[in-house]
Amino acid sequence: MLGTHYKLERKSIRLALGIIVVASIGGLVEIAPLFTVHGTVEAAPDMRTYTPLELAGRNIYIREGCYACHSQMIRTLQDEVERYGPYSLAAESQYDHPMLWGSKRTGPDLARVGGKYSDHWQVAHLTNPRDVVPVSVMPAYAWLNRNKLRTDDLGKHLAAQRTVGVPYTDAMIANAEKDAIGQASPDGNDADGVRERYGDATNIRTFDGNPEVVTEMDALVAYLQILGKLTDAAHKPHTGMEAR
């Protein structure tokens, strides 16, 4: 072996190729099958996509680095299931480009936070966390209430999402901006379109309590309120179709 290596280390290109080959094997064996093995991602026929407003909220979640302190992945451990709800399935994040499973819980897991608190609580908490949770170390995001949400490019966002594999329809892309405003304006004319395209169960509310303008707070709360609610798959008894 030493003799072979004694020759190998005299040729820089051969050494480089050797490194590439040896380093490629692990990734190929572990990652490639995840795209091909049936059952890696469970079937979830009722799964819906994020609405444009929720997607915008998700982008705010990413922009502010919420993932650094909050996971969205409930592990298959009893205490986690009791604390946070049914363990997360792969299907639940199948439209998440990128995934936000997280790696650290400085704050609690958020995979099933949707519907757990009222909009009012979420807004108060984001505006100043210590008003509702005195020992919280979360930053205050009061300025989300002041920032008007940018909606003019949401069609492009949905189109890019479709390119990477999320099943948005032409109608969804064409109406993205209207739907974003409509979802936060229950009394307006655009709310019905949101219901029609994304389902009757979609939350259509003035999330931040201010009907005048659609803010970044509206979007972020809309996103938080849908977490864990895109499909019921995790709440159903499993019938051996899952991969685990």
Binding site: L34, S93, D96, H97, M99, H157, A160
Partner: peptide
């Protein structure tokens, strides 16, 4: 690997999603 929403925007979406994205990210 990601798809930008346009050439005039900093924002892009990862090519992978969910479990495949998680594995690629931690690889």
């Amino acid at each position: 690997l990601a798809v930008p929403i346009s050439w005039g925007s900093a924002k892009s979406y990862s090519l992978f999603s969910g479990v495949q994205d998680a594995m690629t990210q931690w690889w």
